[in-house]
C-alpha cells in the first residue's frame, strides 16, 4: 500500500502560533524594563493622584492608594513568573530524577515511588501551598515549596513511562550491545525523545503555578499586601471598578494574556 501518512491530511501537529511567543515576550520585556523608566517604585504613594489616569511619571496610571500601576504591574509579573519558573524547574529536576530512578531500578523502588506520587495526586495544589504557607514564614518560599511538591508528580509520571518504553526499545538495546555507556544513551536516545513532552509539561506547569498564585492572592491567603501580586491587585482594585476600570483591567489582562500564551505554546506541542 501507499504510505498514507504522506497523503492523508496529516494529524494536526500544530506549531505554536507566533502571537503566543510575541505576547509572552512583550509581557516579560515590560516586566524587566519597566523599572528603568519608572521613578516611583511599587510602594511610593501619591495620594492626591489615587485612581487617576496615566501621566508622565506613571504611564499606566495610579491605583487606589496612588501608587504607580506600571511599577506595580512590572513587579507583580516578575514575581509570578519567577516563582512559577523556580517551582517548575525544581519540580522538573526532582520528577525527572525520580522517574529515571524508578524506571532504572524497577521493583520496590518503582512501586513505592508510584504509590507516593499517585497518592500526592489526590491532594489539591492549593491545599499543599496553603499548608506550606503556615509552616514557612516567607510567602514566596511557601509558594515555591508547595507548588514544587505538586508539580513533580507530572514530570515523574511522564519521564517514568517514557523511559520504561524507551529503555526496552531496540534502539537502546542496540546502543548497549554496541558498547555505548549510559551517558551516550541518555543524550542520544532518551532525552531527544522525552524533551518535547517534558517542555509541554513545563509550560503547563508554569501556567498552572501562575494561576494558583493569582487565585490565592485573590482569596486573600496568598501574597500579602502591600506586595504587588496580580491576584491581590485584582481584589484590591475590584471595589473601584467603576471609577478606574483601566486600573482593574491591567492585572486581569496581563494574567489572562500570560496564561493564554503559555497554554497555546504548550498545547501546540502535544
Amino acid at each position: 500500500m501507499v504510505d498514507l501518512t504522506a497523503i492523508a491530511p496529516a494529524k494536526t501537529v500544530r506549531r505554536p502560533a507566533p502571537w503566543a511567543f510575541i505576547v509572552l515576550a512583550a509581557v516579560v520585556v515590560l516586566a524587566l524594563l519597566a523599572p528603568l523608566i519608572d521613578q516611583l517604585g511599587p510602594y511610593r504613594q501619591v495620594l492626591s493622584k489615587a485612581l487617576s489616569g496615566p501621566d508622565m511619571i506613571a504611564p499606566l496610571g495610579y491605583d487606589h492608594l496612588g501608587r504607580s500601576m506600571l511599577a506595580r504591574m512590572a513587579y507583580a509579573v516578575r514575581l509570578s513568573l519567577a516563582l512559577a519558573m523556580a517551582s517548575t524547574v525544581t519540580a522538573a529536576f526532582i520528577g525527572i530524577a525520580l522517574g529515571m530512578l524508578a524506571s532504572w531500578r524497577g521493583g520496590w523502588t518503582d512501586t513505592l515511588l508510584r504509590l507516593v506520587s499517585d497518592s500526592m495526586l489526590a491532594l489539591p495544589a492549593l491545599l499543599l501551598v496553603l499548608i506550606a504557607g503556615v509552616i514557612v514564614q516567607s510567602t514566596a518560599v511557601s509558594f515555591w515549596i508547595g507548588l514544587a511538591a505538586v508539580q513533580w508528580i507530572e514530570f515523574f509520571r511522564l519521564s517514568r513511562s517514557m523511559m520504561r518504553s524507551l529503555i526496552q526499545s531496540p534502539a537502546v538495546e542496540a546502543a548497549r550491545l554496541l558498547g555505548f555507556g549510559p551517558v551516550h544513551i541518555f543524550c542520544h536516545h532518551l532525552w531527544p525523545e522525552m524533551r518535547p513532552l517534558l517542555l509541554t509539561a513545563a509550560a503547563f506547569g508554569v501556567a498552572n503555578a501562575i494561576m494558583v498564585i493569582a487565585a490565592l492572592g485573590f482569596v486573600s491567603v496568598g501574597m500579602r499586601a502591600p506586595t504587588p501580586e496580580m491576584g491581590l491587585m485584582m481584589v484590591e482594585l475590584l471595589p473601584y471598578w467603576r471609577e478606574a476600570p483601566w486600573a482593574l483591567a491591567q492585572p486581569v489582562l496581563a494574567c489572562f494574556a500570560i496564561l493564554l500564551a503559555l497554554n497555546s505554546i504548550a498545547g501546540a506541542k502535544t
Partner: peptide, 8 residues
C-alpha cells in the same frame, strides 16, 4: 527503523 535513534 526502531533499531536506530529516531531523532538523529
Amino acid at each position: 527503523p526502531s533499531a536506530f535513534a529516531r531523532t538523529q
